[in-house]
Simulated assay, not measured.
Amino acid sequence: MVKYLGLHETIDLHELLTFKNLCLTKSTTMSPLAQDPELKAILENDVTTGQQHIEQLQQFLTNREAQQ
């Protein structure tokens, strides 16, 4: 099996990574401005999960040789 990502797969991952970074930036910026406790909790949860998603996407891009 091929151990490398195809060009289109790499580009798709970069697009997803860019989108997730934008979402993380927006949630991080808006969280301190939120006055509603429920909204603040949602934004903080989004920051946490967004960071995890970004780390996973980065692993796909950096650990391509380990994939089968």
Rank of each mutant, 00 (worst) to 15 (best):
M1F: 15
M1I: 15
M1Y: 15
M1W: 13
M1N: 14
V2Q: 13
V2F: 11
V2P: 14
V2W: 09
K3V: 06
Y4S: 03
L5S: 06
L5Y: 10
L5H: 14
L5E: 00
G6L: 12
G6F: 11
G6H: 02
G6Y: 14
L7P: 13
H8L: 04
H8E: 11
E9Q: 10
E9N: 00
E9K: 09
T10H: 13
T10E: 08
T10D: 14
I11L: 04
D12P: 01
D12T: 13
H14L: 05
E15C: 10
L16D: 00
L16C: 06
L16P: 03
T18N: 04
T18Y: 06
K20E: 01
K20L: 05
K20C: 01
N21G: 07
N21C: 05
L22M: 10
L22Q: 04
L22W: 09
C23Y: 08
C23F: 14
L24P: 01
S27R: 09
T28G: 12
T28D: 06
T28F: 06
T29W: 12
M30S: 14
M30Y: 12
S31G: 14
S31A: 14
S31D: 03
P32L: 06
P32K: 06
P32C: 05
L33P: 04
L33S: 11
L33M: 02
L33Y: 01
L33R: 15
A34S: 04
A34M: 07
A34P: 02
A34H: 05
A34D: 00
Q35H: 11
Q35R: 10
Q35T: 09
D36K: 09
P37E: 02
P37T: 13
E38P: 08
E38H: 11
E38K: 11
L39Q: 07
L39K: 09
K40P: 00
A41C: 02
I42M: 07
I42G: 04
I42C: 12
L43R: 07
E44N: 12
E44Y: 14
E44W: 06
D46Q: 15
D46M: 10
V47F: 08
V47I: 10
V47A: 09
V47Y: 01
V47N: 00
T48P: 00
T48M: 05
T48E: 05
G50Y: 07
G50N: 06
Q51Y: 05
Q51W: 03
Q51A: 00
Q52P: 02
H53M: 03
H53Y: 09
H53Q: 10
H53K: 00
I54N: 07
I54K: 00
I54E: 05
I54Q: 00
E55V: 04
E55A: 12
E55K: 04
L57V: 07
L57K: 00
Q58A: 08
Q58M: 07
Q59F: 11
Q59S: 11
F60Y: 14
L61T: 02
L61W: 03
T62H: 08
T62G: 07
N63Q: 08
N63M: 02
R64M: 02
R64Q: 10
E65W: 12
A66T: 11
A66D: 15
Q68L: 15
Q68N: 15
